[in-house]
C-alpha cells in the first residue's frame, strides 16, 4: 500500500511509543533493584548491588523459589504428557465430540482464575479432604498448563503429514518405532517450546496458586505477601527482576524454537 510520508511517520512514532509503554515498567523495576535506599522514591538516592546479595540469601525467597521450581517442573511434566496425548487424539483421529476436546482443554485458562481456584479449593478441602500444599498446587497448575502444550503440539502435528507415519508402518515399524524414530524427532522442538511456556505460565501464576497452596508459598505468593511490608520492598525489587528474567528466557527460547525456519532471514 502506498502510504504518505505523514502516515508512515505516524505509524513509526506510535509503534515506538507503544514499545516504550510496554517496556517502561520493566525498566523502572530494573532500576529500582539497584536503589541504595530503603525508601522507594524517584529519583533514587543512589545505586547499590547490596540488595542482590540480600535477596539471594533471603531464606523466605529462596524457599519460595524452590517451591516454585518444584511446582513448575511437576506441572510441566504432567501437562506435557496429557497435552501431547490429547493433541495426538484430536489431530490424528476422528471421533464424536472432537471439537469439545479443544474447548475443554482451553476452559481452565479461559475462565477467570478465581473461579478455577475456588473450584479446585472447594473440591480439595470439602470433597476430598486433602491438605493443601505443593501437590495441590501441581494439580492446579497442570490443569491450566495442558492447553499450552496442547496448542504447540497440535500446531506441529498439523504441519507433519500423516503419510510419513503410514510409510513407516508400511515399512514394518511398529507403533513405538514409528513414534520414536519418525514422529518424535519432528515433534521435539514443539514439545520443548510447549514445556517452556507451560513452565513460564506456572512460574508466574498467582490466583489459582493462592487458593491451592495452603502454607507452601510459591515465589509469586511470597512477592504478594511482601508487597505490603515496606521494609522488604528492596528485596522484592530484586526478586522481581530475577522473576522477569526467569520467565522471559524460556519464552524467548520457545519463540526461537517454534518460529518457521523457512520464513526467517529471508528478505521480504
Amino acid at each position: 500500500m502506498q502510504l504518505s510520508f505523514g502516515t508512515r511517520l505516524f505509524l513509526r512514532v506510535s509503534t515506538a511509543l507503544t514499545l516504550v509503554f510496554l517496556y517502561l515498567p520493566l525498566i523502572v523495576i530494573g532500576i529500582y533493584a539497584f536503589n541504595a535506599s530503603r525508601v522507594q522514591r524517584w529519583p533514587l538516592d543512589g545505586l547499590t548491588l547490596d540488595w542482590f546479595d540480600k535477596a539471594l540469601h533471603n531464606p523466605g525467597a529462596r524457599h519460595a523459589l524452590t517451591t516454585s521450581l518444584q511446582a513448575g517442573l511437576a506441572a510441566t511434566a504432567i501437562a506435557l504428557l496429557l497435552g501431547t496425548l490429547a493433541a495426538f487424539a484430536v489431530a490424528r483421529y476422528r471421533f464424536f465430540g472432537r471439537e469439545s476436546v479443544s474447548f475443554l482443554v482451553i476452559l481452565p485458562l479461559a475462565l477467570p482464575g478465581i473461579v478455577t481456584g475456588m473450584a479446585l479449593n472447594s473440591s480439595f478441602t470439602q470433597v476430598l479432604g486433602v491438605n493443601l500444599g505443593l501437590a495441590t498446587v501441581v494439580v492446579g497448575h497442570a490443569t491450566f498448563c495442558i492447553v499450552v502444550v496442547y496448542n504447540n503440539v497440535i500446531a506441529r502435528l498439523r504441519r507433519v503429514s500423516p503419510s510419513l507415519e503410514e510409510a513407516s508402518a508400511d515399512l514394518g515399524a511398529h507403533t513405538w518405532q514409528t513414534f520414536w524414530f519418525v514422529l518424535f524427532p519432528q515433534m521435539r522442538s514443539a514439545l520443548v517450546a510447549g514445556g517452556l511456556l507451560a513452565f513460564a505460565l506456572s512460574f508466574d501464576e498467582v490466583i489459582v496458586t493462592t487458593f491451592t497452596a495452603g502454607s507452601d508459598q510459591t515465589l509469586p505468593l511470597w512477592i504478594l505477601e511482601n508487597l505490603s511490608r515496606p521494609n522488604q520492598l528492596p528485596i522484592v525489587n530484586v526478586v522481581g527482576v530475577l522473576v522477569i528474567a526467569l520467565s522471559a528466557i524460556p519464552v524467548y527460547v520457545a519463540q526461537r524454537l517454534t518460529a518457521d525456519p523457512a520464513a526467517a532471514g529471508t528478505p521480504r
Binding site: 515498567p25 509469586p220 522477569i244
Partner: peptide
C-alpha cells in the same frame, strides 16, 4: 510473559 505480579508492582 513477564511476571504479572511484578508488572503490577512496577
Amino acid at each position: 510473559w513477564a511476571s504479572y505480579l511484578v508488572k503490577v508492582y512496577a
